[in-house]
């Protein structure tokens, strides 16, 4: 595998308002189990239907950090460097129930460059919606700092 340096965006070429290529992810229960295992997060609310129902939820919910991990991958893919996202934070304003129906849900990631900071840093605003681009926001990361090369 080689890294295509020519494909990486350059700080000089990016202006505020630039929208990164968005992405839609399908998320099923098995993906939550996989994330939970990889992240050592065994909280029953992410896989056990009985617990979810007892808490008044329709089904177990996605890990907030799974959603955030998917969103961050859109940024690292664009930057061409998994180390490019140097500061990020966000809120999970809505829970994401994921039914165990073999279909799951769709999460759509949107990211826009808001501001050029001192080179080579950019401030981006990132949002994840449940469903398509008109769905409700389940994650907002308004101050995500990406350092390009």
């Amino acid at each position: 595998m080689t890294v295509e340096t020519a494909a990486r965006p350059r700080y000089e070429d990016i202006e505020p308002g630039f929208r990164l290529p968005g992405r839609t992810f399908r998320v099923e229960r098995k993906d939550l189990v996989r994330y939970g295992g990889a992240a050592c997060d065994y909280n029953v609310i992410h896989w056990d239907d009985r617990t979810a129902v007892a808490m008044g939820l329709p089904s177990p919910i996605a890990h907030g950090m799974f959603t955030m991990g998917l969103a961050l991958g859109v940024l690292t893919d664009w930057a061409g460097d998994a180390g490019a996202v140097v500061d990020f934070g966000g809120r999970f304003p809505r829970l994401v129930p994921v039914p165990n129906d073999g279909v799951g849900v769709e999460l759509t990631v949107e990211a826009t460059v808001m501001e050029k900071l001192e080179p080579p840093r950019l401030r981006l605003s990132v949002a994840v919606r449940l469903g398509g681009s008109d769905g409700g926001k389940v994650l907002t990361m308004p101050k995500t700092i990406v350092a390009l090369r």
Partner: peptide, 24 residues
């Protein structure tokens, strides 16, 4: 394992040579 779970495809998480090419 973690990169696969969050569908992180950047080569710097998967390939030592690619990571070194970026200075890691």
């Amino acid at each position: 394992e973690f990169a696969a779970a969050v569908r992180e495809g950047n080569a710097a998480c998967w390939d030592t040579e690619a990571a070194r090419a970026l200075g890691y």
